[in-house]
Computed example of a mutant assay.
Amino acid sequence: MTALKAHEVARFLARPDLTEGIFLAYGPDTGLVRETAQRLIRQLTGNDPESASLVTLEAAEIDSDPSILAVEAKTVSLFGGKRIIRVRGATKSIVMTLTELRDDPGGAAIVLEAGNLTPKDALRALVEASKLGRALPCYPDSDETLVTLIRETFNQHGIRVDGDVVTTLREILGNDREITRRELEKLTLYAAASKTLTREDVLLLCADNGALVIDAILDATGGGHAEKLELALNRALSSAVDPQRLLAMCTIHFANLRRWRVEVDNGKSPRMVLDGLRPKPHFSRASALEQQLRLWNDSALAIACERILQTTADSRRRPALAETTLRRTLLALCMMAAAH
């Protein structure tokens, strides 16, 4: 019985201990499932990929014609190359067909792509119990695996990155391997000539995928930077960010500033207050937040919070004017900060 752990999959893909049999890539991360199947197929074709016979089937095709999988597995390649059958969307409905091939795949490699399967799932159980079977779990990236993937990608392309690039990317990217790969490919293409990447490059190309554009709005408003506010707002709204979401984030931001300001008024420095927060704000925002704590006093923050709440109520009553009232309110708060 062979049941690989998630952390063992990369090592297996680098050097598979089987060249024929049933290989099952499964898990909740569909992008990683697809990538795992593709990497395995590249390894199985070896040094002669051109002569390999690769057939791709959908599970629905096998459901409608259960014999097709066995026929493809046992068909001799015209060029004598490796026979690989890739099955997408595999489910337990193909277990009966696979049972016929489990002990004698005839030299073929059957690569299955499936969703998140429980240990008791019939398809997973069959593969894990087979001598010529390997089950490859594909779970969302952890912080550690994502950081490793980012570093390895840039190293492979000879791209030098600033110290905060990896941290910034980790905050932007989620846990879907397909999206992560797409974003990293975008960045490597962008840096193909210069061979360097800065945090500004990452924000320019990828910030729309995360909350960084909203942070830019909050810090421009609280810091009194009207031009930066205009740019950040245009970027967010053109990307279909809901004005109500922006108002909600502004409510939280100014409520936090007011809460932190109480500690400043009690004798702590802004830096001490920020250093004591858990979780701590990203280091790239530390200076902006420190400046805002110095600019705003409690009475001004109370006025700002009240104005945001009123704008939220107005925009809900008149949704067609939500963007206009949002812009007007944030610019007014920005001017309040600039006047201090």
Rank of each mutant, 00 (worst) to 15 (best):
S299V: 14
R11W: 01
E185R: 14
E50F: 09
T19N: 09
N175K: 15
R124H: 07
R316S: 15
I94V: 12
K195W: 05
A322S: 09
N175L: 12
G80R: 04
V87H: 02
D63M: 01
A236R: 01
E35K: 06
A248I: 12
Q156I: 06
G21F: 01
H157T: 08
L173F: 14
T45G: 01
K228T: 05
H7N: 13
V264R: 06
S64M: 08
R199V: 09
L4K: 03
P16D: 14
L101M: 13
K186S: 03
L204G: 08
A192R: 13
S77R: 00
A216Y: 02
E185D: 10
V161A: 11
T36E: 12
E290C: 07
G107K: 09
P243G: 04
M336Q: 14
L184D: 00
I68D: 08
Y26H: 09
S77L: 03
L333A: 08
L203R: 06
R134V: 12
M272L: 12
S299A: 12
H157L: 03
I159S: 10
A191I: 02
G223C: 05
Q292D: 06
R271I: 09
R160Y: 12
G133N: 09
R11T: 14
A304C: 14
A135F: 04
P281N: 08
L293F: 00
H157N: 11
S194M: 02
A60R: 04
V147P: 01
V95K: 08
M1S: 15
L4D: 01
L69A: 06
R124G: 00
L187F: 02
L32G: 09
A207M: 01
R160V: 06
L321P: 01
